[in-house]
């Protein structure tokens, strides 16, 4: 996509965390940026349409609400597409990537309980006949806090 202008960059960079918990958050952002609320809404909608913004949303710290794990599989290359499609089709799978390694399929399973995470992993093993490596997080030293796109 084209290079965002200064106001778009500020919208993308400055509000990745601590989004205003105010009945009119976009008006508060507009005040901070010195523009109008309508312009903030219009620009955010355009950035979302272009795919620069996935959503305005909330991420939960691991092991506070619900349960999650990172899982990895060594999928034979001729089966990668169908196995990846099967994994992506599961609602509890929120991230699914092909990576450069013998363990070539990496995905994150998040659910309200650890039991449901286990059921998802068991189902994938049963349906693919492949081993799923379960790699739960034990400690976070630097979690997702967003990062500056433009220094």
């Amino acid at each position: 996509m084209e290079i965002p202008d200064t106001l778009d960059r500020q919208l993308l960079d400055r509000f990745q965390r601590d989004f205003p918990l105010d009945p009119q958050p976009y008006a508060r952002i507009a005040e901070a940026l010195g523009c109008g609320e309508a312009e903030v809404l219009e620009r955010l909608a355009r950035l979302k349409e272009r795919g620069a913004i996935a959503r305005i949303g909330l991420t939960v710290r691991p092991n506070t609400v619900g349960a999650s794990t990172l899982a990895a599989m060594a999928v034979p290359s001729d089966r990668l597409e169908p196995v990846a499609a099967l994994v992506s089709g599961i609602e509890e799978v929120n991230h699914n990537y092909q990576r450069e390694d013998r363990l070539n399929l990496w995905f994150v399973v998040t659910a309200p309980t650890r039991e449901r995470v286990d059921r998802v992993l068991e189902r994938i093993e049963a349906e693919t006949g492949l081993h799923v490596l379960d790699l739960p997080m034990e400690a976070g030293y630097h979690l997702d806090l967003g990062f500056a796109l433009w220094e």
């Binding site: 965002p4 509000f15 990745q16 955010l44 620069a52 305005i56 909330l58 991420t59 796109l149």
Partner: peptide, 17 residues
């Protein structure tokens, strides 16, 4: 307040950018 929020805000798509 209870520390459950990683972050709340604009979730950008790094690939698109």
């Amino acid at each position: 307040e209870v520390g459950a929020v990683g972050r709340f805000g604009v979730i950008v798509d790094h690939q698109t950018l």
